[in-house]
């Protein structure tokens, strides 16, 4: 298959997500008009800690408007071919994700409409983003780019929930589904689906490797918790050599 066609799903994903991110940013500008209350805030109030909740909402929206497009940029081949750019944009993105997006998202999760089921969904998504971001940064520093790519696919996957969840809510509303049910489905569906897709894409890229020894090594590195501490190569290569 020509490389352009093979790359088409990835490009389509990046373009759709970039458009979705821009649309969310535009509709979120109302959160920074301090004179009026946007509909989402009216719907939520009153909350237990109103000032903290409102500040977290604004930090979350601002951080997401910045880091989601940056994550998409980091996924492009153009930036990946420029390691210095990739490193610095990655550091900036990682900083805002870990110190603005995730903490503010956790605060918002506890007051999410839909109760504990929805809170759990948002907290799971936050845990995946934070955990994979830390793991991905660590992997990049060890120059383990296979693990780095896998971790960052999960980060981008969970960020894409912002777009897919809203699109699904619109679709379910058009289908006449009760908005409370739609809200739960439109959160948990994309969270789990994105995690599954990130794993599948990572596995596919492992099996696409022509060298079987390297494939096994990659699987070890990607799936074993021990791989964080011990490089899989030191296990796989000696065993492979025994058979010669």
């Amino acid at each position: 298959m020509p490389r352009f066609l093979a790359d088409l799903p990835r490009r389509f994903f990046l373009v759709v997500m970039l458009a979705g991110s821009a649309l969310i940013t535009v509709t979120s500008l109302a959160y920074f008009d301090f004179e009026t209350l946007p509909p989402f805030v009216i719907e939520k109030l009153p909350v237990r800690f109103e000032s903290l909740w409102l500040a977290s909402l604004r930090v979350h929206v601002a951080a997401a408007s910045l880091v989601f497009p940056l994550c998409l940029l980091l996924m492009t081949r153009g930036i990946q071919r420029r390691p210095a750019w990739h490193r610095w944009i990655g550091r900036l993105t990682g900083f805002f994700v870990l110190f603005a997006l995730v903490p503010s998202g956790i605060v918002l999760a506890f007051d999410a409409k839909g109760g504990k089921v929805v809170s759990a969904g948002f907290l799971l998504s936050a845990a995946i983003v934070a955990g994979c971001m830390v793991h991905g940064i660590w992997a990049a520093r060890r120059r383990d780019f296979v693990s780095h790519r896998r971790a960052m696919r999960h980060v981008v996957g969970q960020m894409s929930v912002a777009v897919t969840s809203r699109a699904l809510m619109l679709a379910l509303d058009a289908g006449g589904v009760d908005p409370d049910v739609a809200y739960v489905v439109a959160l948990w569906g994309p969270v789990l689906f994105s995690a599954a897709i990130a794993e599948l894409v990572s596995l596919r890229s492992v099996f696409a490797t022509p060298d079987p020894i390297r494939s096994v090594e990659r699987i070890y590195r990607e799936n074993s918790l021990l791989a964080v501490l011990v490089r899989a190569r030191s296990f796989v290569r000696p065993v492979a050599r025994l058979g010669r």
Binding site: I24, T27, F40, L170, Y183
Partner: peptide, 8 residues
Amino acid sequence: SRFSRMRP
């Protein structure tokens, strides 16, 4: 109908 998490 906005591209938002608010109730439709």
